[in-house]
Nucleic acid binder design. Structure first.
Lengths: 173, 173
DNA sequence: CACTGGTTTCAGTATTTACTGAAAATTCGG
DNA sequence: CCGAATTTTCAGTAAATACTGAAACCAGTG
């Protein structure tokens, strides 16, 4: 069916575009998110040149963002025997993607935040002025909360998909 | 103790700076995050001019970001009787902050994402090609997952702080 | 060991996003 | 209404970020 091929292409472009836009709201570069979307919806690994063509971007841009995705652990490099160039393939399992993103964001955002909060809490611990006490309390509460969040995220990430979903279902029931 | 006053100021500046940096990693403007940090660690509501001075920013910038914080629901406007100008005060309760941010991010990011995923899943539902099937499956899985996340976030946001913490503790235990 | 196909780097440029400062609008007491 | 105190808007500019394209690099091959 010819119509389907066309339609699929346009749906896919829609997805890629929107996923890219979403990415930039989160602190992720638009291109990186687009490449991710492209690879997630590809039935086979793609070469750098295919990515460049599909998204109409430069080689440098494609290269940098592909490598960044590999660094995040969202994309794998695939080598075909007899082929010299590299191909790229995205992780497609949603739970796995979630865990990967959670781990990476934790490392890049939560940990630094925690260290600031600890520093501020420790530094103000034995102040006696009203202002000092209030500051200490605020920092301590933030620290406690962020720490809890961080531990929860570890715990959830270590669950099997099925178990997590089951738990979620119970919670929602 | 004079030393404490100095130290507090520098700790606070540290916090404000780092919170601002964090903010820009998330898709929030640096200034907005800094103002939020400033107000969170203030023992009293501040005027626009105080915010401008403290952070060395322009009136326009201060104004825009204060209003944005109010729109998010993270900051309240306070009027003092006999005073014409407005003062601003941040929500300090960590759980409340969390809920507010979660709700807002859901509205701005999750909902739009869901609508794309639905559109893509619906549009490809009855395609028969291998590519079409794969695309549909991927969209459906993403949709399902995002939907679950969204419901969970609603559920958690509707809990009392104490209850949520208790549940977290059990989960971590 | 030079050639080919491919990857990596990066200076320069374009795009996006955030900020300034001053003018315009609004509010309110007199 | 008038004018002083404030808030709001926004055109212009600055800063941050992302992208290009070409050159340098690297790894197999004949």
């Amino acid at each position: 069916m010819k119509a389907d091929t066309e339609k699929l292409k346009s749906l896919r472009d829609d997805f890629i575009g929107q996923w890219g836009a979403m990415g930039s709201q989160w602190g992720i570069s638009r291109t990186m998110a687009q490449i991710h979307a492209l690879l997630m919806t590809s039935t086979r690994p793609l070469s750098t040149d295919e990515v460049m063509d599909e998204l109409a971007i430069s080689r440098g841009n494609a290269h940098t963002n592909l490598k960044e995705l590999v660094a995040w652990g969202l994309v794998r490099i695939v080598v075909r025997k007899g082929e010299r160039r590299e191909f790229f393939e995205a992780e497609k399992d949603v739970w796995q993607i979630f865990i990967t993103v959670a781990r990476e964001r934790k490392r890049r955002e939560i940990e630094p935040a925690l260290s600031v909060l600890r520093r501020c809490a420790d530094g103000s611990e034995d102040m006696t002025s009203e202002e000092g006490r209030a500051f200490f309390e605020q920092m301590r509460q933030l620290e406690e909360f962020v720490e809890l969040t961080s531990k929860m995220s570890d715990r959830i990430a270590s669950m099997k998909h099925g178990f997590a979903v089951q738990m979620a279902a119970k919670l929602l029931g």
